[in-house]
Amino acid sequence: MSDSNELPLLKSARREAVGALLIWLLVTTYSVSYCCAYGYNRDPQTLTFILGFPDWIFWGIVVPWGASTVISAVFAFCFMKDEDLDS
C-alpha cells in the first residue's frame, strides 16, 4: 500500500468515517446504558419530571439528542474537510 499516493479525499473520508463511528459508539453506549439503568425495573414512586419529561428520558435521550446536534454541527464545520469530488 502506498499511502503517499493515496487520494486526498480517501484519507479525509476515512478519518471522518472513523470519527462519526466513534461518536455513534459513544452516544449508543451512554444512552442505552443510562436508559437501561434508570428506565427499567424502577419504583414508579421515585419518578420525577424535568421540563415535563420523565427524568430518565430527559437525561438519557433529550440531553444527548441536543448534545449530538451541537457535536454534529461542530464535526461538520470544524472537522470535515472539503474536497473535490472529481479528483
Binding site: L7, L9, L10, S12, A13, R14, E16, A17, G19, A20, L21, I23, W24, V27, T28, S31, V32, C35, G39, I57, G60, I61, P64, W65, S68, T69, I71, S72, F75, A76, M80, E83, L85, S87
Partner: peptide, 23 residues
C-alpha cells in the same frame, strides 16, 4: 429510546460513506 439513534443519523448518514460514495 426506540427512535433515539436518530440523534446521530444525520452525521452517520453523510460522514461514514457519503463523501467517498459521491467520489
Amino acid at each position: 429510546v426506540w427512535i433515539g439513534s436518530y440523534m446521530v443519523v444525520p452525521l452517520t448518514g453523510f460522514a461514514i460513506v457519503g463523501k467517498r460514495l459521491a467520489q
